[in-house]
């Protein structure tokens, strides 16, 4: 999950900074290709690494209720954020604009923290903050990295950090749960 999320964040990099530089269709396809690669890694690792080691479980009613609650809260949150976003881009909002850091936290960190809370996935809080800080960090890094490569630098760095955390957890998991012998 962490590795997939890291690749997902890193895939923002080409879309945000290489669109004008790379030749067509690579400029458009590089982001989706990276997302596809991440998704394939997620599905394959779940099938071949995780399931054979820890088995399969279908959780009961409590977990389903929590999942439903997450979806409801997240939907409400998305609607609120969408309204804020529309206000931001339309004339209705007038001079309504927020600094990069607040925008990042509002539109990315808050939804991810809600998901982290309901799924009880603690690391997602950290990833939410990293992702939310992305635009702000890209803005700051433009001092040392020329525009538009600042986005490439920031999102590859953030994605890279998350992938490294994910790989560390994966290695620990593989060590902790060796492949069991076939059941009797």
């Amino acid at each position: 999950m962490d590795i997939y999320f890291g690749i997902l964040i890193a895939s923002f990099a080409p879309s945000l900074s290489l669109t004008e530089i790379l030749p067509f269709p690579l400029n458009v396809l590089l982001g989706p290709i990276m997302i596809g690669f991440g998704l394939a890694f997620f599905i394959l690792s779940k099938k071949f690494l995780i399931k054979p080691r820890i088995g399969v479980v279908k959780f009961g009613r409590k977990r389903k209720v929590r999942k439903r609650r997450t979806m409801v809260v997240l939907s409400i949150n998305i609607v609120i954020l969408l309204i804020l976003f529309l206000l931001r881009v339309s004339d209705i909002g007038g001079s309504f604009s927020l600094p990069f850091l607040i925008e990042g936290y509002l539109f990315l960190t808050v939804p991810l923290c809600i998901v982290a809370y309901f799924l009880q996935f603690t690391r997602l809080y950290i990833y939410g903050f990293l992702l939310g800080s992305g635009f702000f960090l890209a803005d700051i890094s433009s001092i040392i990295v020329p525009i538009p490569y600042n986005f490439l630098f920031t999102y590859l760095l953030l994605g890279g950090i998350i992938v490294i955390i994910g790989v560390t957890y994966l290695i620990r998991f593989l060590r902790k749960y060796p492949l069991p012998r076939e059941e009797t």
Binding site: P52, I54, G55, V56, V57, K58, F59, G60, P180
Partner: peptide, 10 residues
């Protein structure tokens, strides 16, 4: 507390 699980999980 669950719906079902396989041998490995249990």
């Amino acid at each position: 507390v669950i719906e079902n699980a396989d041998f490995v999980w249990i």
